[in-house]
Every structure is written in C-alpha cells, then in structure tokens.
Write a protein that binds this DNA or RNA. Structure first.
Lengths: 253, 253
DNA sequence: CCCGAAATGTAAAACAGCATACAGATAGAA
DNA sequence: TTCTATCTGTATGCTGTTTTACATTTCGGG
C-alpha cells in the first residue's frame, strides 16, 4: 500500500473497505496542504467532492453580503467537511479555511458515492459523521437562542478546554491561538464585547488573559456559572495518527 | 402487502428495499397517532428507535431548565425524526410534539440499523435526510447570528409561505395556525416583541394579521426588505401520499 | 350560552449589546 | 532595528429587545 493512502486506511471511516476499494479511492484522491488562514473552498465553488481532514484544524465560515463573519463549526482530523455537496448540487453556502496549517484529502464526489453504494459500512460511517455535526450545530443553536453573550463565551471556553486544555501551574491553558475577533465570530458577538467580557471574567478571577492566550484559573466556578458539568481535558493524542511530516507546509498554497 | 406498511412502501426512502426487507420492517414497525400538541418523545426517553412522519406536522423543541422554549425544527411528512438516536445512545436532548394531529411510524433502532447494513440505498437516503436537516439548521444559525428580530420574522414568514402559502383575494394566506408565542419560539424572541413587530409590518402594509392568521399583502416588498428572492408557493400536494383516513385521530393519544 | 384558558395588545422602565471612535501594545516582516 | 498590520483596551451614546405589568379579546369546551 502506498504511503499516500495511509491516513485514509487508518481513518475509522474507511477501515472496513476492501483493499480493492481502498486502492480505487487512492487512485482518485488528492492530498493537499493549506497554510494557516488560507481558504480551502469558497461559497462559489461548485460543490462536488468531499474533504477529509488529515491533520490540522479547519473552520467553516459564513459571511454576509455586508461583510460580517461567523464561524459555524470547527473540523477536527478524521472528520469530513464539505460533504453535503455529495447530495445537493449547486454552490456551497459556506467557506472552509485552514485554522492552522492543515493537510486535506480531496475525495471526488462520484467515486465516494460509488463506494457508498457498495459499502453500507461506509455509508453508515458518513451518516454518523454528518449526524455528529448536526448535534454540534443544534447545540450552538440552543446556545444562541437561550444564552447571553457572557454565558455563551463561558460556554465556549469550556468547550475549548475540553479539546485544547493543557494543565499548567497557573491553571488550564487553552492551547490554541484565538483573537478576540475570532471568539466573537464563534459566539456571534462583536469584538469589543468579547474584550469587555474577558476583562470582566479576569476581574472575577475566573481566567487570566494575555495576547491570544487564555488561562482558566477557576474551572469549577466557570462551569458553575453556566450550570454545566466540569469538562474533562482530552488527552493530547489524536485518534487520527500524525502523518509523515510534510517538508514545508507553508509552501502548499 | 398489508395496509399498515403502505406508507412505508411509498416513502421514497424505502422504495428500494426488497419485499422481504419491507415485510421485515413491517413486522416490527408500529403505527401511532398523536393529537395536536401532544408529546411524541421527551428528552428523558431512551433514545433508540426512529420515527417516520406519515401525516401531520411535528415540531422539535428544546426547553431550558428555567422553562424557556424554542422550536428547533419542523418535520414534514416523509421525513424522519429522532434519527440521531440511531448512532448515539443516551438520552435525547430535545422533545418532539405533534404540531397538528399526526400519524407516525415507530421504527425500532435495531431493525433499521440491520436494514441499513444490507441496503446502501437506504443508508444513502437516511444520510440525505439528515444532511437536509443539517442544512436547515445551519440556515437558522446564520439567521440568528446575523439578523435582527424583525428580519428573522420576515424571513420566517417567507419560509412559511413557501410551504403553507395559499392564494387568496386579499393576498397570500399562511395556512397554518401559529400563535405569536410560537413564532417567537422559532425566531428566538419574546412574544411581546413578535406582537409588536407584526403590528409594525401591518402598519407598513406588508401583511394583515388576525388571530392565528397572517395574510401577506405585499410579498414583493416583504422579500425585498430582507434581501431575498420571492419564494415560490408550493403546490398543495405532498410527495407523501395521504393515507387512508384514520377514524378519529383525536382518540390516538 | 357561559366561563375559563389562551391569545393578543399596549406601555414604561431597564438593560444588553452594538456602532463608533480612538489609543496603546505587540508581533512579525523587512 | 524599524515599521506596519494586527490585536487589544476603553468610553460613549444609541437602539433593539426584554422585562414587567397589565387590559382586552376570542376560542373552545362543558
């Protein structure tokens, strides 16, 4: 088996495919690297084909005609994105960007559809992934419908801890560089509001903030304040294995 | 073929199943009627099994601990709901209610999963349905992130016209009984705000309002006001055939 | 036909978050 | 280093929305 397809083989989604099916997919799949903040697809792109994130982090964005931006979702390694184009042709209505340097497999729509026809396992796996994303989005929806900006921000911090939390002497570091603007785009607020809220939380001794750096000092109380269970901090390992290092990912664009 | 399964057979989702598979499903499926406003499942229910709406209309709701309610989605005949329970055990985190008198098939999770294993067609169909719902929810999310209450309400009216619009001499009737409270729960606002906004729109000669009755008088201008294409009014027929009349659906509960 | 629950209408006060307008701080590039 | 773009901090007025507190109307069931 060639090295190219190594990730795909190791992605739980594809583990039930036969060797033959895998090599078929391999022949058609393309791998590509994207540097931090570059676009992976645009809303105007023709929406066939699906993307599988091998490494990095991808954000799904939406922009209004008057330029306002929101982040709809973050994609983790091993997850698909752009996959709704499989079923509904036409233009995509969102944008995908690499949040950090990322490596992505491009799976042609036709091939993937054919494989799905022949593998109920694969179909089921994809269904699960889409369903999981729907659950995430439903949670965001509830959050927007019911919670204040401050609560949404607190909630977001807790979620981030779950994925990027790192124990430190001073507290739990959210090990991910996020500007206030980005936080604002996630919770649907303005940058200024986020700055103010973070300041408030710092004053309340819940967190300490630095430039693109947030340390949660009192997880207990933070979780309490939004009536939520204290999150577990995920182990640093990924279920999706780290690929052979790409020489210079910044040149991928 | 028995009459019970007639709907299932005619649901595009299941049309590719063999006779044998159908009768297998038939043996396990249960049909049940729910009167207007009754609960179909609760958040505390064990979340196995999936529901197929045969006739009527179902709303998916979420309630906070302090009693605030929101409507996450509406289900049309031929669509599945509660289907995420197929993949993630545990309690459901939403509630389903009959918005009008409704007839529902209950498909046991095990059986459906087994069928999905054996029919890639079926898996694909279910994936499409879940994906469609995700698209709807993503649209709601954008709407909440970007639009004001008034714009969200205008937007909602346009969507409702698409599904329930009925041409009348005075304009286009939204042929669905909805209280201000319900409208508010959909767009994420308070009842009072909705009352005020509807009043405003009436003053602007965009609509006329009566008790649980809204007539859009100037569709053109309404669509313009939220920068959206004028919606088509769907034909009254459903892609899902009307079942043999149930004697007295109100007795179903 | 009457009554009670639900739906609707209205209005004042309080508030949260936004738009706007700056100014200082910092990192990364040249 | 220096310079510039990005990020952060802060203040102010304003607007839209919620909250609260009612009064009124209407439907539907007994």
């Amino acid at each position: 088996m060639s090295q190219t397809i190594w990730h795909v083989k190791n992605c739980s989604l594809f583990e039930k495919l036969s060797e033959e099916q895998l090599s078929q997919l391999e022949g058609r799949a393309r791998i590509r690297s994207f540097p931090r903040n570059s676009a992976i697809y645009l809303p105007t792109d023709i929406s066939d084909g699906t993307f599988l994130l091998a490494e990095g982090r991808v954000r799904i964005c939406s922009t209004t005609s008057d330029g306002k931006q929101a982040i709809l979702d973050f994609i983790k390694p091993g997850e698909l994105f752009g996959e709704l184009g499989l079923f509904h042709e036409g233009e995509r209505d969102e944008r995908a960007e690499a949040a950090v340097d990322s490596t992505v497999y491009l799976l042609p729509g036709d091939d993937l559809r054919r494989l799905m026809q022949n593998s109920a396992e694969l179909s089921l796996g994809i269904t699960k992934l889409i369903g999981m994303r729907r659950k995430r989005i439903e949670r965001r929806l509830r959050s927007l419908l019911f919670r204040s900006n401050r609560d949404r921000l607190a909630h977001l911090l807790l979620e981030l801890i779950e994925q990027y939390g790192k124990h430190l002497a001073e507290g739990i570091l959210i090990d991910l560089r996020l500007s206030h603007q980005e936080l604002a785009s996630i919770i649907g607020a303005t940058r200024e509001t986020v700055t103010a809220l973070l300041g408030e939380m710092q004053y309340d001794r819940l967190i300490t903030v630095g430039r693109q750096r947030i340390v949660v000092k009192d997880l207990q109380r933070l979780a309490q304040s939004v009536d939520v269970a204290v999150p577990e901090i995920a182990p640093p390992s990924r279920n999706y294995p780290k690929p052979v290092p790409v020489p210079d990912k910044l040149s991928g664009q």
